[in-house]
Structures are given as structure tokens and as C-alpha cells.
Nucleic acid binder design. Sequence first.
DNA 1: GTGGGTTAGTATTACTCAAG
DNA 2: CTTGAGTAATACTAACCCAC
Length: 372
Amino acid sequence: MMPAGTDRTYTSFDKMAERYGVDRTTSAKWSHEEGFPDLLFTEGQGGLHVYDAEDVDAWVRDHHFGSWFRSRQGKDNPLDLPKGGPRDLLSLRQIGELEGQALNRPPTSITTLRTYLSPSKRVLPPADRTPGDGLQPTVSEPMWFRETAYTYICRPRRTRRTTPVEAKQPSGRKSAPKQRAAGALLDLDLPDGADTDLLTLQEIGELDGKARGRGKATTVGTLKNYQSQELLAKADRTPGDGQEPAVDEPMWFRSTAYRFIRRPGRLGAAARASREIVDASEPLREDLKLPKGADNDLLTLQQIGELDGKARGRGKATTVSSMRTYLYNGLLAEADRTPGDGQEPAVDEPMWFRSTAYRFIRRPGQLGGSRR
DNA sequence: GTGGGTTAGTATTACTCAAG
DNA sequence: CTTGAGTAATACTAACCCAC
């Protein structure tokens, strides 16, 4: 129950999602970020996380300005800009400073503002006043009315925060994200090679995708994300760093790359399976009664669950949810057919060949009813 | 079923740069 | 001074998984 008798307002991940126009997973993710307000309490059976709405709002303003700003659309003076006469005159430099202040970042440079003035962009309208325009008071450089400038500053936008804002903090905070990656490294199957071999981002992505059992390479874009999160270290070599051999794109030592690839965390099905099957030598059970049928008949997860429950003597079907867990753990191989794989007949959900499914059902181990 | 947590990926943006 | 193309980084989501 919400405590009564206070004027505090409460929020939860769903409410935040609605208010700031983001997905629930996004607001939940925020709660793990540096300095997010403390959890007040949890409520109900599902354990709904409840936070102070005002504290959260202040934090979102600081940390996810774009989302915060969106929630302020339609309000007067959404950015709390200094009051003043609409016809006050502001220079380009002053506009840059006000913008920086409003967005909690360094002043926008005059150079950048000039590019916004270019007719092709028109992000910022031309100056309201120019030297020699014959109006009073005379001006010695282009000037904008406060209202013009404010319309520019409050334009719909997403913002890109620069890191220096955080750099004001005493050092030592930044190491937090690295800590997260500091768990025990995984023992993955990776090609041999000298520690000092040089690898490109793309090559690292290929090795990463393969070793972690995802079947396809991790994209360069994703790796760049990891870089910004400092999960992947900075390149050991960069173009023009003066070392030999010269490189024409950033390169990582094999040892650096492998430390990243072996990071703790979730693995794709293939890699999980190869780690799971310690005792693959145990023979499949041949004593189970299973319907006859062609090896390449196609079965859904639900159908496999039904066969599994029956064959292993549990009376009722293994639930699809349990089947997913088996799949995740690599006990059941990945689907032989998936929607859009271009093969015939087309399927609209993942399907397994009868032979694949039966290999799973005949897995070694106890039969039904033995739990508890 | 509900809600929290994780990962891989895409979309979008602010900003830079070289050349006209 | 303009411009278009390029880049780095952020912001966000889909699709999972897991626990109660």
C-alpha cells in the first residue's frame, strides 16, 4: 500500500515510461545507473518498485535530458531559461551560452551555431538585427531577439550530452562500469595466436559472435557501444600513433580482444550447449515409446513438449515455458527451421525436425514424477 | 501473469571537416 | 561563408531470460 497522508508523489517503471516516453525496459535500466534515486519500497505480489517521482524527475533531467525534455513539451519555458524581455538583444555567443546552460553542457560554440544559420539548415533563423540596418538601438554585430533565441533553444530535439559534465566529479567514479566487467573470464574456444597480433573491430566482432555461440558476427555498431561503455578497451594501436607497423584503422592486440570476448555474461545457445554437455557420452534412451514418423516432419515447441511429457511419463505436457528453458540451456538444439529462412515449406514459427526433437526427448536422465 | 534484468541491435542526433 | 558527407556517441527498443 502507498503510505497515506503525505504529499509525496510516487512513480514506478511503467509510470516513468509513460511520462518520459520511453519503453519500460529503458526506465528499468535507468534505475541501475549512477546516482538513481533510492528505491522507497516494493508493493504487491509482483514486487512493483516504487520511487519518489520528484527525485526521479530531477535525476532524469540530469542524466537523460532528451527524455526529460520530451516530457516538458508544451509547457511554458520548459527549460527554465532566465526571464527577460522578448525583444532583448542577444549575440551569437550569448545564445550559445544560454543553450549550454539550459542543456547542462558546455556552451554551444559559435562555429556550430554558424552552421545552424546556413540556409540549408535553418535551425537558427537569421539575426533579427544587423549592423547598419538603420534601426535603434544600433548594433555592432548580428543580434537575435530573446524570443527568437528561446524558440531555437527550446526546439524539439534529442540531446547528446558530453562527458565533461561528469568529469567535474572527483575521479574514481568512472571505474564503476569497468568493475562490472571484472568478473571471472570465461573459458571460450578461441583461435590460437600471438598476444600481440593485431585485430580490427570487424575481426573482433566475428570472433565474438562465433566464440559466444551466436552464429553470426557481433556488428561493428554494437562493438562501438561496448567501447563507449568501456567493456571493450580502447584500441591498442591507432593510425598515426607512430608505432610499427603502421595501421590505417584502430587495431587491438589479440590479448586485449580476447579479454573482451571472454567477458562474463550471457552466451548464445551453441556456446552454452558445448559447455553444458560435459557428459555427452551417456547414451540416449532407446526405451521410450514415441510415435513413428518421418525424420524431417516438422514439430512446434508445443508439440515437442506434449510428446516429451507423455514419453517421459509425466502424464501432462512439458510446458512451452519449460521448453524454452531447455532451449536456452542448449539441451534442445536450435530450431531446424525458422520463419523467413527461405526454405520450403514456409513456417510461421520455429520448427524442429522430428529427429532433432526425438534426440532431445531421448536425453539421458530421470523420467517423470521424480521431482520432490 | 507480472515485473525486473540483460544483451544485441538500430535509429537518431550533435558535431566536425574538407572542399567549393 | 556554405555545404554535404562523415563520425562518434547517445538514446532507445526488441527479444529474450529469470524470479516470484
